[in-house]
Design a binder for these strands. Structure first.
Length: 517
RNA sequence: GGCGGCGUAGCUCAGUUGGUCAGAGCAUGCGGCUCAUAUCCGCAGUGUCGUAGGUUCGACUCCUACCGCCGCCA
């Protein structure tokens, strides 16, 4: 259906290395991207992630390490990229906002917006928070002119700046939001966003005088200014696509699905649409908003010192374990609490006991009784297999549609649950059919062969359906089954053939015995 | 101050339009199997469905108030 899809994550602010929250967002977007890529036409999918490198906070973070901003950005950006590669985030573009191509594109959009009359110059004075990189009004501040976000005093600043007309587009954006169900999802965030249009919108300051901050993209119409880092960053969703002509962007944007955290809902629901309208481009297709990951009940942040390093976990247990955990444990859109104890529980219960053990027992029996050779056509059992077989076969057959539906709705956790229901059905089937008991009498071997092909074939379908969530594990199991790409994707009953040989098992997820960490 | 949302078994949560809706998984206990990574299968629970009222033949599911937690806007 949708033959053009463009997926993006937020362009991550590079004032420090990635934490689990960044990884979560990219993993979710990646699962969605991988899922869509499996559909017809999916090979045209583009997927952008990257780093947002301009702005005062990045410059200050660099200064702390005695690095110039670009050198610092090089370092942090590389860490992000390495982390995402390790997690098998299947991005097609890793954009850095300091890339010349990106900078040129932003300048082009600035120039156009200026020419169209939606950017104007005016004097401005107000209270400014360095941490937020924005001005505050009195009533937004805590007593004593304290920034509510950073708990630090704001500074009085008087300067002239360029502004983007936001109010001009309020009615149009609101109308789009109201007439487009699913534009922002889950629903709760759509409702939240709608309320942002109840009051007039203050125009957005999109420049910073170089005298104060020169780490940014220069305005094409005034070389004494750079553009505000937020204005800069949005364009990264588009700036390094293979074709950035208006015609191409007019196709890409309606096919664009943004993945963001709830903290930047306003910028994406209000500023970004206005920016697009101001240059005469269509709006993106959908905003997919997720919640925060907390640790010990509070939001992960450097200041509270509860940051979880995703790579430490990934190196320790494997990237797929991290991917599995965050996708299985948390409902997309809701906050979730992360703890290593929960990871280990999930690992042992789901990965070691269910997925790993089932793989192991099925392949072990096939190896032991038939030297790994498939004895029959799957799904065509002629003999009595016990009560579990019909339920099992039906579960496997229904899996693909079920997953499709759930991932489209961003319910990754329930999609994984659905796969695990099939694992459960397989275990029940094994007990009901008891191939290991039958095998004691050679006369029963044909029936055992039928049972095992059903199990191997189901394992193949499971491994294939796991690809979007746990790509490495998927590959491992498919490799053990010794199947090629085409066979891997076949529907249940059309994959493994009689005479095919599968490999003996290797432990995929050895149990973790230490009770806690 | 205005407007969301949330509060269901020890834990994490499902519960569509009110009438097997009181559930799942994990953890716990007991029993069974032995192909498998001491894995798997079966059985057993516990719950005043935040509190107090109301509507109804009947509410976890609707209404009101309150308590607690959180979010957004101001």
């Amino acid at each position: 259906m949708a033959d053009r899809i463009h997926i993006t994550t937020a362009i991550h602010y590079s004032n420090g290395p990635p934490h689990l929250g960044h990884a979560y967002e990219d993993i979710a977007a990646d699962a969605y991207a991988r899922h869509l890529r499996r559909k017809p036409g999916g090979s045209k999918l583009t997927f952008v992630t990257g780093t947002d490198e301009h702005g005062q906070k990045n410059r200050d973070a660099a200064a702390k390490e005695n690095l110039d901003p670009k050198a610092f950005a090089d370092k942090i950006s590389a860490i992000f990229r390495t982390a995402f590669d390790r997690l098998e985030i299947s991005y097609t573009n890793f954009v850095r906002t300091t890339d010349p191509a990106h900078e040129a594109f932003v300048q082009k959009m600035l120039a156009r917006t200026f020419e169209r009359g939606d950017i104007y110059f005016r004097d401005y004075e107000g209270l400014y928070c360095v941490g937020c990189e924005r001005f505050y009004t009195d009533k937004e501040l805590l007593p004593g002119n304290i920034c509510p976000e950073h708990n630090q005093p704001v500074e009085f600043l008087k300067e002239s700046n360029y502004f983007l007309k936001l109010e001009k587009y309020r009615a149009a954006i609101r109308a789009h939001l109201e007439s487009t169900p699913g534009f922002i999802r889950p629903e709760r965030y759509r409702n939240e966003a709608l309320r942002m249009f109840d009051e007039p919108l203050a125009d957005l300051c999109i420049s910073r005088p170089k005298a104060r901050l020169d780490w940014g993209i220069e305005l094409p119409f005034d070389d004494k200014f750079v553009t505000y880092v937020w204005y800069d960053a949005f364009w990264a969703y588009l700036s390094e696509l293979p074709d950035t002509s208006d015609a191409a962007l007019a196709e890409v944007l309606p096919a664009t699905e943004h993945f963001i955290g709830k903290d930047i809902l306003k910028t994406h629901a209000v500023y970004w649409p206005a920016m697009l309208m101001a240059v005469g481009l269509p709006l993106y297709r959908r905003l997919n908003v997720h919640g925060y990951l907390t640790t010990g009940g509070s939001r992960m942040s450097k200041s509270s010192g509860n940051v979880v390093d995703p790579m430490e976990l990934a190196e320790h247990l494997g990237p797929d374990v991290l991917r599995y955990f965050v996708l299985r444990e948390f409902g997309y859109g809701l906050d979730g609490d992360f703890s290593e104890a929960r990871v280990i529980e999930r690992y042992n219960a789901d990965l070691a006991n269910d997925l790993g053990n089932l793989t192991s027992r099925v392949l072990a029996m096939t190896a032991r009784y038939f030297n790994g050779e498939i004895q029959a056509q799957p799904g065509t059992h002629q003999s009595e297999h016990g009560p579990g077989v019909d339920y099992y076969c039906q579960q496997v057959r229904a899996l693909s549609d079920r997953i499709e539906q759930l991932i489209d709705a961003l319910e990754f956790n329930r999609a994984l649950e659905a796969i695990w229901q099939v694992l459960d059905a397989a275990n029940k089937y094994i007990v009901a059919a008891a191939p290991f008991t039958l095998a004691k009498d050679p006369a029963n071997l044909p029936r055992v062969g039928e049972i095992l092909v059903n199990l191997c074939e189901g394992l193949r379908v499971i491994a294939d359906s796991l690809e979007a969530f746990m790509p490495a594990t998927s590959r491992k199991i498919l490799d053990l089954l010794n199947v090629d790409q085409t066979t891997a994707h076949a529907p249940f009953g059309e994959g493994l053939k009689r005479g095919h040989r599968v490999k003996p098992p290797v432990p995929l997820f050895p149990r973790i015995e230490k009770p806690n960490a």
